[in-house]
Nucleic acid binder design. Structure first.
Length: 504
DNA sequence: CTTAGGG
DNA sequence: CCCTAAG
């Protein structure tokens, strides 16, 4: 099976325009194969076609890199990123379990990288004269252009609906938070969830099944997925009207690149339903031979901390035609005087991302700069709010602004200490008295509502009942989890008993 | 306002 | 975490 897609991120947004450098490393030019499982075939491919030296442009350098590692003539291989400031060009090959990475370092890292990378691989002998090239907006734009293209989804309703989880043939995949009752033109809460759904997308997947290995009595078919394109949801940008067109362009570019920088994760939806279990096999998930293969969607989801400073908001838009969608600062918690934007109607998308850099925040002279271009793949709406550019760059985002926007609360994972307090409280009070539990164990914790505690307990029970390998986040001591289970069992039993008692 | 559950 | 029907 081969799945391809691409995205690029740079963890130093401000330097994106300075570009990226491709580094040389032993093993192959800019190629590293982390595990011994990397297939010789892939390595050989690199050896046979080392990256050419490029002196005529950054984009060309990276293009060349992409081209050279492309083994089957397809477009750029999957480009993803890890937590470091690198862009990885990965290659997954089921047959060989191969994973090769081409790391692209920031220019700032160049010196170190070069010092530590001898480039001794035979295949790189022609690279002595290699000069790292910057990868400027050029390349980014190119990538975006190719990846963001709406192409195959033009008839699918585009990004109009919530979540804009574009589906394959006109089939709308509901966003995670979409409510059935929501109707067009009805303004919906602004994006909740900075962690969900940024780039949505994913269109078509065409499958072919072929080959098989008799394994344990069933055939192991190959599934070929071709992702036609990913879409970027509507972009929402606030920028002073005194800003220059050039800065506007840069801002938009920043918005887009920021989405990527934030770390993307791929989601898979089958018939509109997200498949969460990464351990499932395609076959188990229903992506297999004999099944309809046009109902799979991939989404690019962004993991982003809400605390990150931001100045630009990206949001998707719901079904509606109005261009005036500035959300009234609905959930503003702080005293920040925020004049409501007029005409604030608009179905906002569930996903919104705050971009690095600025605040945009407390400004409010919305000026419609552009409205959606329905024919374009991005359908972006860019709004400009009067504010000082300098302020934009330095003022930290204000919470008022954020909350008012309807922003989902930032994730605040429970610490082990909190978990312990919760467990203790529940052990004493039971599982149905969350208000009391809040008052007892979390009285001072204003950020924890009793609903939060109830939810946390729910997840704790779940966590305790799954294997340690499946757990995520800060590990909760098994001892606590054991107490969770026993308390849960005890209190649910009590509850049952009380039911019976009241019945008889 | 709280609970309880689904999203 | 969010949303909301119920109580």
């Amino acid at each position: 099976m081969l799945v391809r897609d691409s995205s690029v991120r740079c963890t130093r947004p401000c330097e994106i325009s300075h570009g990226l450098d491709i580094i040389r490393e032993p093993g192959a030019f800019g190629v590293r194969h982390p595990g011994s499982s990397c297939s010789a075939e892939v390595v050989q491919a690199h050896q046979a076609e080392p990256i050419r030296r490029q002196t005529d442009g950054h984009a060309a350098a990276l293009d060349s890199l992409f081209d050279s590692v492309d083994l089957d003539g397809r477009p750029p291989a999957l480009v993803s990123s890890d937590s470091s400031s690198r862009v990885l060009l990965c290659r997954h090959d089921k047959e060989h379990k191969a994973l090769c990475k081409v790391e692209v370092h920031h220019t700032a890292d160049r010196d170190n990288d070069e010092n530590s990378s001898g480039c001794t691989h035979p295949s790189t002998t022609g690279n002595e004269g290699y000069k790292p090239h910057y990868l400027g907006n050029h390349r980014i734009r190119k990538l975006l252009a190719s990846k963001v293209r709406k192409a195959a989804c033009k008839t699918c309703g585009g990004m109009s609906n919530k979540g804009s989880k574009l589906s394959f043939c006109g089939k709308k995949i509901p966003g995670t938070r979409q409510k059935v009752r929501r109707t067009n033109f009805k303004r919906t809460k602004l994006t909740r969830g900075a962690t969900k759904g940024m780039l949505t997308g994913a269109c078509g997947t065409s499958f072919t099944t072929k080959g098989q290995n008799k394994l344990c009595g069933f055939e192991d078919y190959q599934v070929n997925l071709k992702i036609n394109s990913f879409n970027i949801p509507e972009l929402f940008v606030e920028i002073p009207e005194t800003a220059t067109i050039g800065s506007l362009k840069r801002t938009v570019m920043d918005v887009v690149t920021s989405i990527m920088e934030d770390g993307l994760r791929v989601g898979v939806l089958l018939q509109g339903k997200s498949i969460q279990d990464d351990n499932k096999t395609l076959h188990q998930a229903g992506i297999c031979h004999g099944e309809k293969l046009n109902n799979i969607d991939f989404t690019l989801e962004c993991d982003r901390q809400q605390d990150s400073p931001s100045g630009v908001i990206i949001q998707e838009e719901m079904d509606f035609a109005s261009a005036d969608i500035v959300e009234p600062l609905a959930r503003m918690k702080y005293e920040e005087p925020f004049p409501e934007t007029k005409g604030g109607c608009g179905n906002q998308q569930p996903m919104k991302a705050y971009l690095n850099g600025s605040l945009a925040g407390c400004v409010h002279h919305p000026v419609e700069m552009a409205s959606q271009d329905t024919s374009a793949s991005l359908q972006s709406v860019i709004r400009v709010a009067a504010s000082d550019l300098n302020a934009l760059a330095t003022v930290p985002i204000c919470k008022a602004r954020r909350s008012e926007i309807g922003q989902r609360r930032a994730r605040m994972p429970f610490s082990v200490g909190e978990v312990e307090a919760l467990v203790e409280a529940v052990e004493q009070l039971g599982t149905g008295r969350w208000k009391d539990i809040k008052m007892h164990g979390f009285d001072g914790a204003d950020h924890r509502t009793y609903v939060d505690l109830k939810d946390k307990w729910k997840t704790l029970v779940h966590t305790a009942s799954i294997s340690p390998q499946q757990r995520r986040g800060e590990p909760v001591p098994q001892e606590l989890l054991d107490r969770v289970l026993s308390a849960q069992a005890y209190w649910s039993q009590q509850q049952e008993a009380s039911w019976k008692g009241s019945c008889s």
